[in-house]
């Protein structure tokens, strides 16, 4: 699946260190497929009717904005599947936990690193445009914020490249490595 430019409103979670147990609690990890997890996203926090994900605007938002160290804790890729299933296509945060970031990139969910002071200036009701090709986040069509991403991940997302296919193209090198080492 290719990552396309899109515009959307955002949901703001003003909280740091949001761990994957909050994104999707372990009791939802007994599934054996990837689909249908959107309904379990932040399920315990959503039991509060005032929680931001329960607002009508959240239902159509494709962008989640969070505090630093988003996705810390468990390696569960279910966290990404749940965010995707709910409709999110990008998460904006000052930093991401390593495993979550990897999982997100592998599922077409774009982790956008924006520093905390800049996030604090983002208007809650704006229309945001995410352009991966330009690596920009636009606010109501003008303010453009540049965000970093490594060129390999960018290409994979834009072209919908399959990482396993990429690894398997190196079969000769893998076989040579196995033969050379004591690993054979």
């Amino acid at each position: 699946m290719k990552f396309e430019r899109f515009s959307s409103q955002a949901v703001f979670l003003n909280r740091e260190n949001i761990d994957t147990d909050q994104i999707i609690p372990a009791r939802f990890l007994k599934v054996t497929d990837k689909i249908g997890l959107g309904s379990a996203l932040f399920t315990d926090w959503r039991s509060d009717p005032a929680f931001v994900l329960n607002t009508p605007a959240a239902a159509t938002a494709k962008i989640l904005v969070s505090g630093a160290n988003f996705g810390c804790g468990s390696s569960r890729e279910h966290a990404v599947w749940a965010l995707w299933g709910f409709g999110f296509r990008a998460v904006i945060a000052p930093s991401f936990a390593d495993i979550f970031r990897q999982n997100a990139l592998k599922n077409g969910l774009l982790p956008i690193v924006v520093n905390a002071p800049t996030i604090a200036t983002l208007p809650a009701d704006a229309l945001f445009t995410v352009d991966l090709l330009d690596q920009t986040l636009s606010v109501d069509g003008d303010t453009r914020i540049l965000f970093p991403i490594d060129s390999f991940s960018k290409t994979c997302l834009l072209e919908g490249l399959d990482e396993l296919g990429y690894i398997l193209k190196h079969e000769a090198a893998i076989a040579a490595f196995e033969k050379a080492g004591t690993r054979a």
């Binding site: 569960r76 495993i99 999982n103 592998k106 990482e163 690894i167």
Partner: peptide
């Protein structure tokens, strides 16, 4: 690692 990576390691 995540599950996509589990698949990658199983295969490669």
């Amino acid at each position: 690692i995540g599950t996509t990576e589990v698949e990658q390691v199983l295969a490669s």
